[in-house]
Design a binder for these strands. Structure first.
Length: 279
DNA sequence: GTGAGGCCTTCAGC
DNA sequence: AGCTGAAGGCCTC
């Protein structure tokens, strides 16, 4: 099945820019799991080829269209960002890289795992969680696992998470799972809340500070004005726009949201991807 | 209100 | 070989 896309598209950059950690590439095909579905896709020109097998094509098409946010005209996003070359250069270079609409729960746990870590280790942590605690799912002879539910995490317990080498993040993940399972925090309702309100809810979870919360708002909840500030972004923004002044992350976040506007999150991700790949 | 130190584990660099 | 520091942050004192 072919899904054609109206605006720019770059599948490789989209899947391997550090916003999501479960995609694997073999023989030019990208294999991933979206909710409980194994997906096999590749890019052909400006469209996505989807490998289907006994699956409802209409359903898969809708699912991917939502996941990649294909209704968003990304060229219009570029137009609305500032014209300075610091943001326009990586846009030119990785034109078509999209911000996904991931499963909030998986995204949350992924970014709790990201603290003092790196993409390679985060990916291994997440995959180990799925292999040990998820359900088997498959596409033809290709097998993967679904992302474990909060219940699965609670049942496993913090000691088991430590055995999976999640380190000090184990307690955070376990406690967050409990708060979500109990209903104390309801992720679904964040879709309809404002940036400030949803941010406030997310940072009430253990292991979730301003940076992690902004990642979840951006990569799962499609709040495109979210602006995660890690050490790299902090350095990049202060050096290029703020005279190299040493400023706290919150200050850089607020300045950037004001400067870049409604699509600040897109600016963030392009700048981040640019500096991450430049060595 | 702000800042330094500790935290699991891995991996690169001496 | 074995040590040391850093790695996409958060929490606590």
């Amino acid at each position: 099945m072919i899904i054609s896309i109206k605006s720019s598209f770059d599948l490789e950059s989209t899947l391997f820019s550090g916003q999501v950690f479960r995609w694997q590439k073999f023989d030019g095909w990208y294999f991933g799991v979206i909710f409980d579905h194994v997906v096999k896709i590749k890019q052909i020109d400006n469209s996505i080829e989807v490998y289907c097998e006994n699956t409802d094509k209409f359903f898969v098409s809708r699912m991917l269209s939502k996941y990649f946010n294909l209704d968003l005209d990304i060229d219009e996003v570029y137009n609305q960002l500032p014209k300075d070359e610091f943001v326009q250069n990586p846009i030119k270079k990785y034109k078509g890289m999209r911000i996904l609409k991931q499963d909030p729960w998986e995204c949350l746990i992924s970014f709790i795992c990201s603290s003092v870590s790196n993409i390679k280790r985060i990916s291994k942590n997440i995959e180990d969680l799925c292999i040990n605690l998820g359900n088997n799912i498959h596409l033809g002879s290709y097998s993967r696992q679904s992302f474990p539910t909060p219940q699965d995490i609670i049942y496993a317990g913090p000691d088991f998470l430590r055995e999976l080498k999640l380190g000090f993040r184990s307690e955070y993940i376990y406690q967050s799972a409990k708060m979500i399972e109990s209903g104390e925090v309801n992720l679904e309702e964040l879709y309809s809340l404002s940036y400030d309100e949803s941010l406030q809810t997310l940072v009430s979870l253990p292991g979730v500070g301003d940076k992690v919360a902004n990642c979840v708002l951006l990569f799962a909840f499609n709040k495109l004005d979210a602006f995660p500030v890690d050490v790299w972004i902090n350095r990049a923004i202060t050096r290029n726009y703020l005279k190299g002044e040493k400023l706290p992350p919150l200050h850089v976040r607020n300045w950037s949201r004001n400067y870049f506007g409604n699509y600040a999150g897109y600016a963030n991700h392009y700048i981040f991807h640019g500096i991450r790949l430049q060595d």
